Simulated scan of single mutants.
Amino acid sequence: MDQRVKPAPHEIRRARTDNPKTRERDLAAQLGISEAELVAAHCGDGVVLIEPRVNDLLTGLEAVGEVMALTRNESAVHEKIGVYDKVVTGNHNAMVLGENIDLRIFPKVWAHGFAVEKRDGDEIRRSLQFFDAAGEAVHKVH
C-alpha cells in the first residue's frame, strides 16, 4: 500500500508548471495521484467542473463540428477526428455511429467531468475530459 501523502492543489499546479511537456497521465502517476485529481487541482484556473451527463453531451456535440475523440489505456491510444453524429443514447449504453467517430459508451462509468482551456502561446486549446470513479480517464473531446 502506498503511504505517500497526496500533494496539495498548489503543489500539483507547480508540478504542472515545472513540467509543461509531460503528459497529464504521466505527471499524475509521478505525483501518485489520479489524472482526475491533477485536472481538478486547476479548477478556477482554466478548468471548470461539469456534470458528466453523457447523453446530453453526446447529443450536443454534433453542433460543435469537427473534433478529436480520444480514449486511451495503458496499452493503446485511440484518436479519431470527425463529428459526433448518428448518436444513440441510453442509460446503460450510448453509441456514436458516425463515419469517422464510432464509439460504444457506458454512461454509468463516467463519474467526473471537466471543461478545460489551456493556453499555448496565443492559441487556446479546449477540451472536455471525463473520468471514472477512480479518476482514470474514460474519454476526452478536443
Score class of each variant (00 low, 15 high):
residue 6 K to F: 00
residue 7 P to G: 00
residue 8 A to H: 06
residue 9 P to Y: 01
residue 9 P to E: 04
residue 10 H to F: 00
residue 11 E to W: 03
residue 12 I to T: 07
residue 12 I to E: 13
residue 17 T to G: 15
residue 20 P to T: 01
residue 20 P to C: 04
residue 21 K to L: 07
residue 21 K to I: 11
residue 21 K to M: 06
residue 24 E to Y: 09
residue 24 E to L: 00
residue 26 D to W: 05
residue 26 D to H: 11
residue 30 Q to K: 14
residue 31 L to H: 01
residue 33 I to F: 01
residue 33 I to Y: 01
residue 34 S to M: 15
residue 35 E to I: 12
residue 35 E to P: 01
residue 42 H to V: 10
residue 43 C to F: 02
residue 44 G to A: 06
residue 47 V to F: 13
residue 49 L to F: 06
residue 52 P to Y: 00
residue 52 P to G: 08
residue 52 P to V: 05
residue 53 R to T: 09
residue 55 N to W: 05
residue 57 L to M: 07
residue 58 L to P: 04
residue 58 L to A: 06
residue 60 G to H: 00
residue 65 G to E: 13
residue 67 V to W: 03
residue 69 A to H: 00
residue 72 R to W: 13
residue 74 E to D: 15
residue 76 A to M: 08
residue 79 E to L: 07
residue 80 K to E: 14
residue 80 K to P: 12
residue 81 I to H: 08
residue 82 G to L: 14
residue 82 G to N: 05
residue 84 Y to S: 03
residue 84 Y to L: 02
residue 86 K to L: 09
residue 87 V to G: 01
residue 89 T to F: 15
residue 89 T to W: 10
residue 90 G to V: 14
residue 94 A to Y: 06
residue 95 M to E: 04
residue 97 L to N: 15
residue 101 I to D: 03
residue 103 L to G: 03
residue 105 I to G: 01
residue 105 I to V: 10
residue 106 F to C: 04
residue 107 P to G: 01
residue 108 K to P: 02
residue 108 K to A: 14
residue 109 V to M: 15
residue 109 V to P: 02
residue 110 W to H: 02
residue 110 W to P: 07
residue 110 W to S: 06
residue 111 A to W: 02
residue 111 A to M: 02
residue 114 F to C: 08
residue 115 A to D: 08
residue 116 V to Y: 00
residue 116 V to M: 02
residue 116 V to H: 03
residue 118 K to A: 15
residue 119 R to K: 12
residue 120 D to N: 05
residue 124 I to Q: 06
residue 124 I to L: 14
residue 124 I to R: 10
residue 124 I to S: 11
residue 125 R to K: 11
residue 125 R to T: 12
residue 126 R to L: 05
residue 127 S to N: 08
residue 130 F to Q: 02
residue 132 D to G: 03
residue 134 A to N: 11
residue 134 A to F: 04
residue 137 A to Y: 01
residue 138 V to T: 01
